[in-house]
Design a protein around this nucleic acid. Structure first.
Lengths: 388, 388
DNA sequence: CTGAAAGCGCTAACAA
DNA sequence: TTGTTAGCGCTTTCAG
């Protein structure tokens, strides 16, 4: 819903605008009036007027007001059953009156919990832009976490220095659990984290065969859906641009493609594979390769949407019409797919849900460190945008 | 660079794959072998073999090993100058040997610092997808933070409950500073945070005229660039789809448009305004309105890329050719702009840099809470993709 | 069911 | 320059 306010209604709001409009390469840093408002004096003396409490109320204060001991307040705060109704009421009231909130540091110091979970992102700096995956996982994680009172801290682990810092951080008990979203096949991180004994959940399966909790999209199934769709719409000469084979995503999507084509009685198609790197340029290059090698293909399954975009480009350059001559189906369904030209048919994975499930798994493992390793595979969905 | 590995080289990696392929709507949760490896027993007894240190080494341990007092170790850790070279060396060695890392909780308890800064996101759930802005700011923030040893915690503040939780969190000294990235005009959050006295930096200017540190793109200048570009390529009947006028982005981009058209001697153009909501649907609707009211416009400046996409759609539906009949320039330059059909000319803002500058400002304010409020305006850039 | 007391690991006076 | 001594605010036995 957008406002249908007529034009011209914005003038009054312009009053506060600063005219700063730096056009050069470096930012203009202007300074305006003093930041701190008309609050009470900060100095030592205590002026006549109201004096803000400089320190947050403590358990002690609550106890005193409620007429009980600190221990009892602590019990109430932590939901212990063994507190009399009267005590409970008094404490609750005192807490409300004082606006008491527990001090996490103090609590953490004694409990050795941190009420914090860490999301470690292990991402190539150059893949950095155009990555809705990350944002959406994050969204899901945050959403799932908001039902708890865990805090989410973000750690980048790109490069040795940052990686070690992240490792030290989790290794020294600064987090109750770790969520690892690692885009490449490098698996020193998972190993190191597991070694530190902190609960860990990954996005994507480990190719090394270790058992770690993880959630993943049904990449095999999704790829099969793509093949079935292509076959179902009459395509007969399929090929695929696979993702990197040191990642489970890459491996699984290729596997789904191969299984589906083979089962459909077309083992030759299972062999028409070029391995890309999930980038648009890679998709374009590998599609060109496929085209050179198998000039008569009439469908391409690209293992990512970016690669699908590249495929589109390669096909255009090769003079093939999409979808008339060659159909393209991509994996991952970002906004890009919707605006591609021609619009891309894609396999959608539930990225946000992935984040949610990761949290669910992590909480379960924190609760019971000895439970069996679990995997959650989220279904995928075919999104048809073009009549491919 | 993508690998040019021939097809077929993936087979061996498939061995570890689980066959789980849930196609239904609910996730399949399989359990595999026990998670925890062959680590030492967790129980009370201490088996014959190696026993891992269950607890991280403390200052005390370092002190003992180094033959000094805890205070001295603390001084070394915190970089105090008043430590003898010998003591320093001994402590450093002990720290290395033990792998000592300070306990943040303990430190925080006494220093009342948290070494944590909070990024509060105040976002509509429905704007959630297709929002590279957020991810890129985040990237910049994280990057800037990685030079310090501050931790980044993420807080969502959507809805009263979450908002209050976030407010309580920062209000109770759980963060040394707050970064606020608020997409709509609602300004109860900034006010509340400022009231709590925690250092705050915002993305975007406050419309209420309060002085708070902020960094923003040069929205006015960017809009001017758009107008100048349009005028420079021969367009004579400009119109704009503005953003919401309760946000500084909306206001400023409209202002730039008006200033530029007015200065170019075309005050009438300054009046051809429709107010959208930054969504594609809104852009489409408002462009349609503009078209109805001013049938002879030959250029549209859309205050966001999504709205530009909507404009494209509206123009197509109205039978106008882009860019031949009507040129479109959008603001914000996401991947979408690159794949729009026809390709969109846009004004790019340095979103990642924005995050970096926010951190810079925040650190400065933490260091000196009484400094003057500062603003950083980042330059924008015209990205021409079509010959509009 | 409740309170007293003992720290969790660290920093910051204050003495020496 | 160094060590000693108090706590920071909270949880958690252990008595009562």
């Amino acid at each position: 819903m957008d406002s249908l306010k007529g034009e011209g209604s914005a003038e009054e709001t312009l009053a506060a605008g600063s005219a700063t409009g730096a056009a050069g390469a470096s930012p203009a840093t202007g300074t305006t009036a003093a930041a701190r408002g008309a609050g009470p004096a900060d100095g030592a003396g205590d002026p006549a007027g109201v004096s803000l409490p400089r320190r947050a109320p403590t358990l002690e204060a609550v106890a005193e007001l409620a007429g009980v001991s600190r221990a009892t307040v602590s019990r109430v705060v932590n939901g212990s059953l063994k507190v009399s109704p009267e005590a409970h009421a008094a404490v609750t009231a005192a807490i409300a009156q004082l606006g008491y909130v527990p001090n996490r540091a103090a609590r953490s110091l004694v409990t050795r919990r941190t009420d914090t979970i860490v999301l470690i992102v292990h991402e190539r700096p150059d893949t950095v832009f155009s990555d809705p995956f990350f944002a959406n996982v994050l969204r899901g994680v945050d959403e799932a976490l908001s039902a708890t009172d865990l805090q989410l801290v973000l750690l980048q682990a790109q490069g040795e220095v940052k990686r070690d810092r992240a490792l030290r951080y989790v290794g020294n008990g600064h987090a109750d659990g770790v969520l690892l979203i690692s885009l490449h096949g490098d698996d020193v991180l998972p190993k190191a984290i597991r070694a530190s004994g902190v609960p860990l959940v990954m996005a994507g399966r480990l190719l090394t065969g270790q058992f770690v909790d993880y959630v993943d999209a049904d990449n095999v199934g999704g790829a099969r859906q793509a093949v079935e769709h292509l076959l179902g719409t009459g395509r007969r000469r399929l090929a695929t641009v696979a993702g990197p084979l040191d990642m489970s995503v890459g491996v699984d999507r290729l596997r789904g493609y191969r299984e589906a084509t083979t089962e459909a009685g077309d083992p030759a198609a299972a062999g028409r594979v070029a391995v890309g790197d999930f980038t648009e340029a890679g998709g374009q290059r590998q599609t060109a390769r496929l085209l050179a090698k198998y000039p008569d293909i009439d469908a391409v399954f690209a293992a990512s949407d970016l690669m699908a975009l590249g495929a589109l480009r390669a096909l255009r350059e090769a003079g093939r019409r999409v979808p008339d001559d060659v159909a393209v189906v991509g994996f991952d369904d970002t906004a890009l797919a919707a605006y591609a030209d021609p619009p891309l048919t894609t396999i959608r994975q539930q990225v946000e849900r992935m984040g949610q499930e990761m949290v669910r798994l992590l909480l379960a493992r924190i609760a019971d460190p000895d439970r069996e390793a679990a995997e959650v595979i989220l279904p995928t969905e075919l999104v048809v945008r073009a009549s491919a």
